[in-house]
């Protein structure tokens, strides 16, 4: 599924958070949305998930406007939010079933799909444990499994590794890349950590509400005349 965002601008009161941001996501690829804190990444995610209303510009999913066909769009998007959005006192399976129900799946279907996802995430044996007993990395995996239950074609992850140790961060990043390859999933991974991005990823660099670069990592480096992405990120944003 193609995703085209065109001329997105967004303001909170007088403060402009996004300025004329346009980009397209390539189906089946891993995209890194790189930007320092406060760059406007979460606002962009708010717009893509309809938690915020578009003020200017449009977002097309598979050619359909997000505003005109919201239900269709939401069916195709899976989201992992920056903050934990699991019920800690409910079990892993109960969390998944709740999400499945919100997407209109029956209990039977929910269980089947949930177990399949958990198996893939090596979490099936913990399905009946309360989420509270899981460590941060596993909780994140549950959230990703949940986001995939309704079989979306676009997976949005807003700084999913916040609060994780280095090893869990790397594992989660690898895992999502694998999903991207296996399922042909289009992924948009927002982060401020350069080490989560590879040179051959599609990279979008957002800074102070503006899209400063958009393209394959190594191509951006070439254009900017830098040796690697870290240097590019630093020279463009002053961060990193």
């Amino acid at each position: 599924m193609t995703i085209d965002a065109s001329n997105l601008s967004f303001q909170y009161g007088d403060k402009t958070v996004l300025r004329d941001v346009s980009f397209s996501l390539t189906p089946g690829r891993f995209h890194a949305l790189l930007g320092p804190n406060g760059a406007g990444k979460s606002t962009l995610f708010g717009l893509l998930t309809r938690l915020l209303a578009l003020q200017a510009g449009d977002i097309l999913l598979g050619g359909q406007s997000l505003n005109k066909q919201p239900a269709d769009a939401m069916r195709r998007i899976g989201v992992v939010f920056q903050q934990n959005a699991l019920d800690l006192d409910l079990t892993v399976r109960q969390n998944l079933q709740y999400h499945a129900a919100l997407h209109g799946l029956s209990r039977h279907e929910a269980r089947q799909r949930g177990d399949r996802e958990l198996e893939r995430f090596s979490l099936l044996d913990r399905a009946d444990e309360p989420v509270r007993q899981l460590n941060g990395g596993h909780r994140r995996r549950v959230e990703i499994a949940r986001a995939l239950l309704h079989q979306p074609s676009l997976l949005l992850l807003d700084e999913p590794t916040v609060g994780l140790d280095v090893a869990s961060r790397r594992a989660l990043n690898e895992h999502v890349r694998m999903l991207c390859q296996q399922d042909g999933l289009t992924v948009l991974w927002a982060t401020h950590l350069i080490e989560e991005v590879r040179e051959d990823d599609r990279v979008l660099i957002l800074h102070q509400g503006q899209l400063l670069a958009d393209g394959a990592g190594h191509a951006i480096c070439r254009t900017e005349g830098t040796r690697n992405l870290a240097e590019t990120f630093h020279s463009l944003t002053g961060a990193g």
Binding site: A71, L90, Q94, Y98, A100, A101, L102, G104, L105
Partner: peptide, 20 residues
């Protein structure tokens, strides 16, 4: 969305509230 899907959603939200 059809009526069955609404129903599953309705039951899912009720169930969660009771579990909590």
């Amino acid at each position: 969305m059809n009526a069955t899907q609404y129903w599953h959603c309705f039951i899912g939200i009720q169930t969660r509230e009771w579990l909590r």
